[in-house]
């Protein structure tokens, strides 16, 4: 019983690990595309945390079926926030990649060190 209760936090642990793995890629890798990949992992971790919070025990997706009494629904609000955030995430990621492409055209490299040396 105690163990099962602890496993109820497993999603949050995965959230913490993925978040820090993404952060590691952002602070440690010098390749700009790798940094952006790290940033999108970081972002996915936040999505996972929000969606974890929406779960209600014994609930279903918040689509109300007629004629079924006493249904339990998961929380629709975090879902809405993340639904829009995913699409916004890909657009901003594309903006970042566009800047990286331009940097590569101007400096001939996407390694942070070499760009700093070139300046």
């Amino acid at each position: 019983m105690k163990l099962l209760e602890l496993l109820g936090y497993f999603n949050y642990w995965v959230f913490a690990i993925i978040l820090t793995v993404g952060l590691y890629a952002v602070i440690r890798k010098t390749n700009l595309i790798k940094k952006l990949i790290g940033l999108s992992i970081f972002q996915s971790a936040v999505f996972l945390m929000y969606i974890t919070m929406d779960k209600v025990e014994g609930g279903t997706a918040p689509i109300i079926q007629t004629g079924v009494e006493n249904q339990i629904f998961s929380n629709p609000l975090p879902q809405v926030l993340i639904l829009t955030a995913i699409v916004v995430g890909v657009s901003t990621l594309a903006l970042g990649l566009a800047i990286v492409v331009r940097i590569n055209e101007s400096y001939g490299t996407i390694e942070e060190r070499e760009i700093l040396d070139a300046d």
Partner: peptide, 8 residues
């Protein structure tokens, strides 16, 4: 999907 967020 497992966490009941079909739309997401």
């Amino acid at each position: 999907f497992i966490l009941d967020a079909a739309d997401v």
